[in-house]
Design a protein around this nucleic acid. Structure first.
Length: 478
RNA sequence: GCCCCCAUCGUCCAGCGGCCCAGGAUUCCACCCUUUCAAGGUGGCGACACGGGUUCGAAUCCCGUUGGGGGCACCA
């Protein structure tokens, strides 16, 4: 952008109780764009649908955004020069604009009730014709109008789409776009209860809050010409628009709850790292060109560019996100990983000593795609009542009690309790029996950890301690 | 039904007229490494939707067909 005014863009969600990955991606692209240009990123809460939005939903939204590391410069709580940033607190603004539109002849009172509109829509659909508003109240005669008013009929304010116009704009990702105004239907701007609708509130706020760029999902592309017409009738200078391709589920329909995990909160709770989620989302519908896939936040900010946003929808690939999360997990320092593991373990009901976890961290780092796998991998360290699962029992029975007793004896007699020493003792046992490590170590693993899958055995035993190791071997032998 | 958007491996991307009988990643399979499981390494399967043009030359440009997506609410 060569514009001299600083970039201002926003994420303007309707809080629904959770932040959807599609919303998160939109927020991320706005944030990247703002940060790349040294601009301002605004959070605006679009809560005009009063019966659906709750304070708690707003909390969850903000928590998810913060978790992702998408900080905003203006918004609810943090404030800013263009507040308030919750639309329910801005109704006087919208009401005045509504009056201005009506006074200028750009909007008219529509007396159709929601029921009537619904019935007509269904009828139109059944007939196979366009379901939109037919414009009947726009053509009301003075006497008809007077009759409705006398009747005390409630009315909504409807924007009058000018006829025979071409609305043109240059979308920053789609390129030049044109809509014929005749394909647009008159839309409600103020509901009969006085509240504004999306088209009005969002448009007015984009102007009032000085937005230079509106980056949003492609599902809103058709609302752009309507808002442009609205701005024109208000004499306002419109922002630039950029419409992002949608994120789809495996069935190629718009990603939604029924596709499974789509809430950012879910990924937080299931052991995903925000950096991994951000990296994955950034590459969903955008690419800096080339084959690289792992980018730090700073690198993303530096490389971000609207012109490289793809034009077609992208299917959300949970497996690839998992892989990427594993990559980020492995990049963590042992200390960093340990701190996170303590939280995860506590949540899983395995309160753990940070000193032990610190030593366990390198043992599990390569064995997890997500943090929430840690409890099952490390449980044997934190509780002594480890029941043997089916496979573990089979492994133990295969070698018999006497084998485990000898293992216990040898380990008990060991001079130093270190991983190499333990490995040495186990190897001696294995050799004496003419076994190999795979066959000879597995029963020990099974007896001590209760499973046939665990972190490396000598290191695990070293961490567990001699006493507990020996006790478990003897108990399994009994 | 009408309006709009789009089209490269199953999936995400690279490619922006010759470097491409198409490259990377993920998934899946095999092998190597190996104390289990992983991680890592190597290799393999796998795509330019179709038809017309334009051009010396097309995955790249144009048109059409087909296919996919979105929208057409007193939801946002």
């Amino acid at each position: 952008m060569s514009d001299s005014n600083p970039v201002r863009c926003r994420f303007a969600p309707a809080p629904s109780g959770f932040l959807h990955v599609g919303g998160a991606r939109t927020a991320l692209f706005n944030w990247l764009f703002a940060r790349h240009h040294g601009g301002v990123f605004v959070l605006r809460v679009e809560d005009t649908d009063a019966d659906r939005v709750t304070d708690e939903a707003v909390q969850v939204l903000e928590r998810s955004l913060r978790w992702l590391g998408l900080d905003w410069d203006e918004g609810p709580e943090v404030g800013g020069l263009h507040g308030p940033y919750r639309q329910t607190e801005r109704y006087d603004v919208y009401r005045k604009v509504g009056e201005q539109l009506a006074a200028g002849g750009h909007a008219y009172r529509c007396y159709c009730t929601p029921e009537e509109l619904e019935a007509r829509r269904k009828e139109a659909l059944a007939r196979g014709s366009a379901p939109g508003y037919d414009g009947r109240c726009r053509r009301l005669t003075d006497t008809e109008r007077a009759a409705f008013e006398a009747e005390g009929r409630p009315w909504a304010l409807r924007f009058a789409i000018p006829e025979g116009r071409d609305v043109e704009f240059d979308d920053l990702v789609k390129g030049p776009s044109r809509f014929a105004s005749d394909s647009l239907r008159d839309f409600i701007v103020v509901r009969s209860d006085g509240s504004p609708t999306y088209l009005l509130a969002s448009g007015v706020d984009d102007i009032r809050m000085g937005m230079t760029h509106v980056i949003r999902g492609e599902d809103l592309l058709p609302s752009t010409p309507r808002q442009l017409l609205l701005f024109e009738s208000l004499g306002a200078e419109p922002p630039r628009y950029a419409h992002l391709p949608l994120i789809l589920g495996p069935d190629r329909a718009k990603l939604s709850k029924r596709h499974g995990a789509v809430a950012v909160e879910w990924f937080r709770e299931h052991g995903y790292l925000p950096d991994a989620v951000v990296n994955y989302l950034a590459l969903l519908g955008w690419s800096p060109g080339g084959d690289r896939e792992l980018f730090s936040r700073q690198e993303l900010v530096e490389a971000f560019d609207l012109s490289h946003v793809s034009h077609h929808p992208a299917v959300f690939d949970a497996q690839k996100l998992e892989w990427m999360n594993g990559q980020y997990l492995r990049q963590l320092s042992d200390e960093d990983l340990a701190v996170r593991l303590v939280d995860v373990l506590a949540d899983a009901g395995e309160p753990a000593d940070i000193r032990v976890v610190r030593q366990a961290a390198p043992l599990v780092k390569e064995r997890m795609q997500t943090l929430d796998r840690a409890p099952e991998l490390l449980r044997f360290l934190f509780r002594d009542d480890v029941p043997l699962d089916e496979r573990a029992r089979a492994a133990v029975e295969k070698v018999g009690a006497e084998y485990l007793t000898e293992a216990a004896d040898r380990l008990e007699a060991l001079g130093t309790w270190t991983a190499p020493a333990i490995a040495g003792a186990l190897d001696e046992l294995v050799q004496a029996r003419g076994l190999n490590r795979t066959k000879g170590w597995q029963p020990v693993r099974a007896a001590v950890t209760g499973t046939t899958v665990s972190p490396p055995l000598p290191e695990s035993l070293a961490l567990l301690g001699r006493e507990r190791t020996v006790a478990r071997l003897r108990r399994a032998a009994a």
